[in-house]
């Protein structure tokens, strides 16, 4: 099957600093791809290029078969930025309704999906609460709900579980797996190595490129470690030696 995301020899230069340095990766249709790496590895930059928010300096990236940047595919893609990306002076419902309208959903569609999503993120009671009055983790949950509202077939989630409590994180991952089983593709960045085991494939990223890639099982076996954290450290060390 055709890959939903395909990045080839991608580079992104920020005034002489290469945030993305010869990055190549593919995300297959219907898989959860986890992008892992330290702060400044270039994960967010890569996702922004895929969402058409940054222009590649060289190389190319295809999303759903279309070369980015291309505004045409926006409605099929869901993007959860690393920032909260919510209007703090608006209530939960007003935020969801706004993003729904921007994606061209009808009032009815917004209403039904909002209900389901608020149930998922366990915030049904907070529908009319201002974002500003929610806790940090709750705000993050609403941010995810806003991303899922228009039922995209490809998701770019930049640290979707940061600040979310362990219970709910488990719920999120079960939901992501459910989405995947329904044929939705996901590219997810995270710093929580333990939750990366839910991914079908993982790319370890450092200094703007992939230093190792494979299923969680493969990465553990190759490095003879029993946690992804150790596996990453092992790769990081060998990188450092080179």
């Amino acid at each position: 099957m055709k890959d939903d995301v395909c990045i080839r020899n991608l580079e992104k230069d920020f005034g002489g600093f290469k945030a993305i340095n010869n990055l190549s990766l593919r995300v297959k249709h219907g898989e959860i791809y986890g992008l892992l790496g330290p702060n400044g590895a270039g994960k967010t930059t890569a996702i922004k290029i895929l969402c058409g928010l940054l222009r590649p300096s060289s190389g190319e990236a295809y999303v759903l078969g279309t070369k980015v940047p291309d505004p045409g595919m926006a409605s099929s893609v869901g993007y959860m930025p690393q920032e909260l990306a919510l209007y703090r002076n608006l209530t939960v419902h007003e935020n969801l309704a706004f993003y729904g309208e921007v994606f061209g959903l009808s009032k009815k569609e917004i209403e039904t999906r909002e209900q389901a999503l608020l149930k998922l993120v366990d915030l049904e009671a907070s529908k009319d609460v201002l974002i500003d009055e929610l806790s940090g983790g709750m705000q993050h949950r609403i941010s995810l709900a806003c991303t899922l509202l228009h039922e995209p077939q490809l998701l770019f989630l930049d640290e979707p579980t940061v600040g979310v409590d362990p219970d709910l994180r488990a719920t999120f991952w079960r939901y992501f797996e459910g989405l995947r089983d329904a044929g939705i593709t996901m590219l997810i960045t995270t710093h929580y190595m333990d939750e990366a085991r839910h991914c079908d494939r993982i790319g370890f990223m450092r200094d703007g490129r992939i230093i190792a890639e494979g299923s969680p099982q493969e990465l553990l076996e190759l490095t003879h470690t029993d946690s992804l954290e150790d596996a990453f450290l092992a790769y990081s060390r060998t990188e450092g030696l080179q």
Binding site: P81, E83, L84, A85, T147
Partner: peptide, 9 residues
């Protein structure tokens, strides 16, 4: 706040 990113995407 990042809302502009969401909108531009």
């Amino acid at each position: 706040s990042g809302t502009l990113f969401r909108l531009l995407a």
